[in-house]
Simulated assay, not measured.
Amino acid sequence: MIRVALAVAVGGATGCVLRFLAASWVVAHWPRHYYLATLTVNMLGCLLIGLLSGLFLLRTDLPLELRTGLTVGLLGGLTTFSSFSLELLNMLEHGRIAEAAGYLLCSVVGGLLAAWLGLTLARLCQ
Rank of each mutant, 00 (worst) to 15 (best):
R67M: 03
V108A: 12
V4I: 13
L104S: 12
N90K: 13
L74D: 04
V17D: 03
A100T: 05
T40F: 14
T71N: 11
A23M: 05
T40H: 03
L78W: 06
H94Q: 10
L78M: 08
P31I: 02
S83E: 00
R96A: 12
A13S: 14
H33A: 10
G76D: 06
S53P: 02
L74S: 02
L18Q: 01
M1Y: 09
L51R: 05
G118W: 05
A122F: 07
T80G: 08
L78N: 05
G12C: 04
M43D: 01
E65Q: 15
W30T: 10
F84S: 05
R32F: 07
G76N: 07
S53F: 06
R19Q: 03
G15E: 00
A28C: 01
A114C: 13
T120S: 12
M1G: 12
W30L: 13
T80K: 09
T79R: 05
A7H: 01
L57Y: 09
R19I: 03
L44A: 14
S85I: 12
R32M: 09
G77E: 05
A114I: 07
Y34P: 00
Y35E: 11
L75G: 09
V4K: 01
G50C: 02
G76E: 09
L51P: 08
A22G: 03
L70R: 09
L64W: 10
M43G: 01
W116L: 11
L117M: 09
S82K: 06
V27L: 10
L52C: 09
R32A: 12
C16Q: 11
L52M: 08
L44I: 15
L75M: 08
L105K: 02
C16G: 15
R59H: 11
G15I: 00
M1W: 06
L51H: 08
G54N: 02
L48I: 01
I2L: 15
P31D: 03
Y35T: 02
A101H: 08
F20K: 04
G69D: 04
F20E: 10
L39A: 06
G110L: 05
T79N: 07
G73F: 04
S83N: 06
L44N: 01
L75D: 08
V27A: 13
A101L: 12
D61A: 07
L70V: 07
H29C: 10
L55W: 15
V4D: 01
T80N: 14
T38I: 01
A98Y: 07
W116S: 09
C106P: 05
L78S: 04
H29V: 14
V109C: 09
G45E: 00
R3T: 13
L62P: 00
V27Q: 13
L57G: 13
A122R: 07
T40Q: 03
H29Q: 14
V26E: 05
L36I: 06
G54I: 04
A5I: 13
F84V: 05
G76C: 07
R3L: 12
A28W: 00
T68M: 11
L64E: 15
G15P: 00
L66I: 15
R123A: 14
S85P: 15
S107P: 10
A13G: 15
T60K: 11
V26P: 07
R67H: 05
L57A: 14
A98F: 11
L112F: 12
R19A: 04
T71Q: 14
L62Q: 00
L86P: 01
A9W: 08
N90G: 08
